[in-house]
Design a protein around this nucleic acid. Structure first.
Length: 615
RNA sequence: GCCGACAUAGCUCAAUUGGCAGAGCAGCCGCCUUGUAAGCGGCAGGUCAUGGGUUCAAGUCCCAUUGUCGGCUCCA
């Protein structure tokens, strides 16, 4: 799949995208004034960079979600001080009130103009051949070669731009960081320096955006994971391998319990499969052919090679194949929290969201062709309902259709794509179609959820598979007594427990709702003489199914409140003489709300209610 | 993997032009017995990521390795 231009805009992580990105596709971002401002700011930045490095080579500089970037080849690596200087010079250029002027010219004229800019020459050659725009993205339209000039800077550019640099607010721009980026995204091509910046119409918008970046930093699951003692990653263990600490593991178990009971209720059968399988298995599945570079090297025992599984499907296929299936048996839904290992390049690893060992909440559906639309509908609805329980309210769907190279009958593809799309429509989900973006073996829907501060995260994936049923030759006996090929759907709903946990930490900023909180109530005795009573209350609350802890340290009440507050425990129960006498607890919520002394049974009722409501 | 930055106590961070490795929090031991976000005192805690090198002297300078972070590419 061609990378979306906007996928490269991530400043704070790899798997989420800001809401604006979706807006870009949906609501004419490219026609907006803001887009022009950002694209123009990129040109102004390039001017400022060339001022400082006249021998520098410029590559491309588009507007992206929330900002812009420009790629350069420069004689040395840029420092943060350079960025400040460049940013200052941008303001000077902006204040010079230079007009942006457009001119069309022939390829030869353009080549002459950009004679000392090899990247531009390559783009011009591409434009002349057609099929690509000046950012190297495929296009159907025949390209006109145009240039834009402001002040001393001329760039090969399709536009559009603002008419004058004065339309860029000098108080609403900021350069954010510099990083490496391959020319045309190809690792075999030169590594360029990319400067990311952001630009807005008003200074307040910039401030709001910077605040959002700060907020995202505060919610970073790697930071919170350490502070709240949820998980760790250790060099000695290995990169991308997660150690779940007791509190993180508790949350995981709660997620798994909920996940399991919902699957139980909705017609899934649970299966367990091994962590390794013989090389023959992976040859049959095609993974050794298509996926080899992502697999861990094989282990050889008694002359037989075993691979650690990167996916669970082949095992589920053999469970299906273990007996003859009737059309009456279908649909069959096998679910497993299957732990897989994939070799990911060291540079891509990221906290919990990109790891080398992870547990997919995997399932495979086998159904008759006529059941397929219902099966899709079911999966879509089931997924959305489960995600909603975790506080996600907004979803985006991405439907990826048949690529050029694909296995399976085009008619089947069409039917599957139509079923996927129809289901999205029925459920009123906003979606985009990524034409040709499907895997070679089938079309898919990915769901992205919007978290509490509006970032998009990819979790759910529902994929059709026209390949493996064929490769493993699975069948069911149809009404006419003849074997037929079932349809197969892969789906991971939370994605992986690791990634989901990471997203959940950021979504809730570590303040898990009562039903997920590892400790729901911290009991805080004021003085030692209240300890026995505190233990008694704790036992009673545990009896009722609440997760409580008694802070029996010799510290002062204030210190205990502070610690419980920082641990983001939902309820603090303060116990002193008054409470002891009346069999009460003084309830403080982590919001800071002080509900005063209430009878123990009242607290139990309140807490159990909130747990049940998953708020 | 690639480009760049970084790596000091369990955590967050100091350490001047190369000159005896420090603080707060957490931990442990005491005292205090406490009413809604840190009570007081003491003790202990370090192969300055690892391995080389330069130097009378290296946390500090140089080289390599490992890891982390920001991106690129890829993805659950």
């Amino acid at each position: 799949m061609e990378p979306r231009e906007t996928d490269s805009s991530q400043l704070l992580g790899r798997v989420f995208i800001w809401r604006n990105m979706a807006a870009k596709h949906n609501s004419g971002y490219e026609e907006s004034n803001l887009y022009r401002i950002r694209h123009s700011a990129a040109h102004v930045m390039a001017e400022a960079v060339l001022e400082k490095f006249p021998e520098g080579k410029v590559a491309i500089g588009p507007a992206i979600a929330d900002g812009f970037y420009y790629d350069f080849e420069l004689p040395r690596a840029l420092t943060p001080e350079d960025l400040e200087e460049i940013e200052g010079n941008m303001r000077r250029i902006i204040k010079g009130k230079h007009a942006f002027t457009r001119k069309e010219l022939s390829a030869d004229e353009a080549r002459e103009l950009f004679a000392d800019q090899p990247f531009k020459i390559e783009l011009i050659d591409g434009l002349e051949r057609g099929g690509f725009d000046e950012d190297g993205n495929p296009t159907d339209e025949k390209q006109v070669i145009s240039i834009y000039q402001q002040d001393s800077f001329v760039d090969l550019c399709r536009g559009p731009h603002v008419s004058n640099t004065a339309e860029i607010n000098p108080d609403a721009i900021k350069l954010l960081n510099v990083s490496g980026a391959y020319w045309r995204g190809d690792e075999k091509r030169p590594m360029l320096q990319r400067i990311y910046g952001t630009a807005w119409e008003k200074a307040e918008d910039l401030q709001a955006y910077l605040w959002k970046l700060e907020e995202a930093k505060k919610r970073d699951h790697r930071k919170l994971g350490k502070e709240l003692d949820l998980f760790s990653i250790n060099d000695e263990v290995g990169q991308g391998l997660i150690l779940w600490h007791p509190k993180g593991a508790k949350i995981r178990r709660l997620i798994e319990d909920y996940w399991g009971s919902e699957h139980e209720k909705h017609g899934y059968d649970f299966v367990y499969t091994p962590h390794v399988g013989k090389s023959q298995l992976w040859e049959t599945s095609g993974h050794l052919g298509f996926y080899n570079e992502n697999m861990y090297s094989p282990i050889e025992i008694e002359g037989v090679k075993y691979y650690i599984k990167p996916m669970n499907c082949p095992f589920h296929l053999y469970i299906y194949k273990s007996s003859i299936r009737s059309y009456r048996d279908l649909p069959i839904r096998y679910a497993e929290e299957g732990t897989v290992y994939r070799y990911e390049r060291s540079g891509v690893l990221h906290g919990l969201t990109r790891v080398r060992g992870f547990t997919q909440d995997d399932a495979h559906h086998f159904c008759r062709p006529d059941q397929m639309p219902d099966e899709i509908d079911f999966v879509v609805e089931f997924s959305i309902n489960i995600l909603k329980a975790f506080g996600f309210k907004e979803f985006q769907a991405y439907l990826s259709t048949r690529p050029e190279k694909a296995v399976g009958d085009p008619e089947q593809w069409k039917a599957a794509e139509d079923a996927l799309e129809a289901s999205l429509k029925r459920h009123n989900l906003p979606y985009e179609i990524d034409a040709g973006g499907g895997a070679f073996y089938g079309p898919k829907i990915d769901f992205k959820v919007n978290d509490a501060i509006g970032r998009e995260w990819q979790l759910t994936t529902v994929q059709f598979d026209f390949n493996e049923p064929e490769r493993f030759d699975i069948t069911y006996i149809a009404e006419d007594g003849q074997p037929k090929r079932p349809y197969m759907i892969h789906r991971a709903l939370l994605g992986s427990l690791e990634r989901f946990f990471g997203v959940l930490i950021e979504h809730y900023a570590g303040a898990f709702p009562a039903w997920l909180a590892p400790i729901q109530a911290e009991i805080i005795p004021i003085a030692d003489r209240h300890l026995d009573y505190a233990q008694k209350i704790a036992a009673e609350l545990r009896e009722k199914g609440l997760r409580v802890h008694v802070d029996s340290r010799a510290d002062r009440m204030n210190a205990k409140i502070r610690d419980a507050q920082r641990a983001k425990v939902p309820y603090m129960l303060i116990i002193g003489d008054k409470e002891m006498e009346a069999y009460k607890v003084a309830l403080r919520k982590r919001s800071g709300e002080d509900l005063g002394a209430i009878p123990v049974e009242d607290f139990v009722q309140l807490a159990l209610e909130e747990v049940a409501q998953k708020v």
